[in-house]
């Protein structure tokens, strides 16, 4: 049982965690989406080297629901001892605060934002049997059907959801948005053909596009993405939108400064390792490089930026 014991962290603990002794036990990293999405992938990729550098285990915990706001709320309510962290993201910390009428946290005030981890474009993917290979096909099918097309997303409030709403508005006919608890279950539904289309963050879709289980039809990046040069951008196909999704590391408000600083330092080192850079590139994401202050400011700006857009779009959580 020695290995087990070492692994199960025989770090003695007497009294609450102090910044000096941090981390005094295993860390819980809340992923506010179901397993199998970008947030989940990135969390696990970063958690592993982070755990090694900090010398404690990091348990990734999926708490999905309501466009990532359930898990984020849980983190906001946790003790700010640096032992509970959350993957902050555009859904829960950018769009959600405006989209959800009864949200119970403030995306800036109730969190300590530590680092931006990854930013990446979104991609529209289609089931290969759906007969949709590009945006023109999508538009044609959408117009041809009296009830329009269905399109899945990882949850209401993601930038992927906003893209669906925007596309519908551009076409003058609403696309039926089908939210899931995360990109994993949504992707399963698309592969199965239950829903023909999905708007997804590139990293979670990347491996499925490569495997050919789904077909990429449009990318939301400015120019063609280096990892997927064959996939045309939305702009190229006449849908004039550029959109970026982001994921970061945050904790509850009031985390000790030393803890934040240490976390930010370690995270930055990890994001600069060639291994992580190579993996992020493969997934189509750009590693973040922001200080805690910069990231906090970034979140603040995102909330302000999205508020009028969300209201104007008339999007609703359901």
């Amino acid at each position: 049982m020695t290995i087990a014991r070492r692994a199960l962290l025989a770090t003695p603990l007497a009294g609450p965690a102090f910044a000096q002794g941090w981390p005094s036990g295993s860390i819980r990293l809340i992923v506010p989406f179901a397993p199998g999405g970008t947030t989940d992938l990135v969390a696990r990729m970063v958690a592993t080297p982070l755990a090694e550098r900090l010398g404690v285990a990091i348990a990734v915990e999926n708490r999905a629901g309501a466009g990532a706001t359930v898990g984020s709320l849980r983190a906001a309510q946790a003790a700010p001892d640096g032992l509970t962290l959350v993957m902050s993201n555009i859904a829960s910390h950018g769009i959600g605060p405006t989209l959800y009428p009864n949200i119970r946290y403030d995306a800036v005030r109730d969190f300590t934002h530590v680092a931006l981890l990854i930013s990446n474009p979104s991609v529209f993917v289609a089931n290969p049997r759906s007969g949709i290979a590009n945006l023109a096909d999508l538009v044609a099918q959408h117009r041809a059907r009296p009830q329009g097309l269905d399109m899945a997303s990882s949850g209401a409030g993601s930038s992927n959801h906003m893209l669906i709403v925007r596309l519908g508005q551009t076409l003058g006919k609403e696309i039926n948005h089908v939210p899931f608890r995360g990109a994993g279950p949504a992707m399963t539904a698309v592969i199965a053909g239950q829903v023909p289309l999905m708007s997804d963050s590139l990293p979670s879709a990347a491996s499925h596009i490569r495997q050919g289980s789904v077909r990429a039809i449009a990318m939301s990046s400015e120019a063609r993405h280096p990892a997927f040069p064959d996939v045309p951008t939305m702009r190229e196909q006449g849908f004039d939108v550029v959109s970026t999704t982001w994921f970061g590391l945050s904790g509850p408000a009031g985390m000790p400064a030393q803890v934040v600083e240490r976390l930010a330092r370690e995270t930055r080192v990890i994001l600069e390792t060639p291994d992580i850079r190579a993996r992020f590139a493969e997934l189509g994401g750009t590693p973040g490089a922001m200080t805690p202050a910069e990231y906090t400011e970034f979140v603040r700006r995102e909330v302000a930026l999205w508020a009028p857009l969300v209201r104007a779009s008339g999007a609703t959580p359901d």
């Binding site: 025989a10 770090t11 603990l13």
Partner: peptide, 13 residues
């Protein structure tokens, strides 16, 4: 405490 190391106070605070 020894094997699972759950996070609790052991003594009065």
């Amino acid at each position: 405490i020894r094997e699972l190391d759950i996070r609790v106070n052991l003594w009065p605070t």
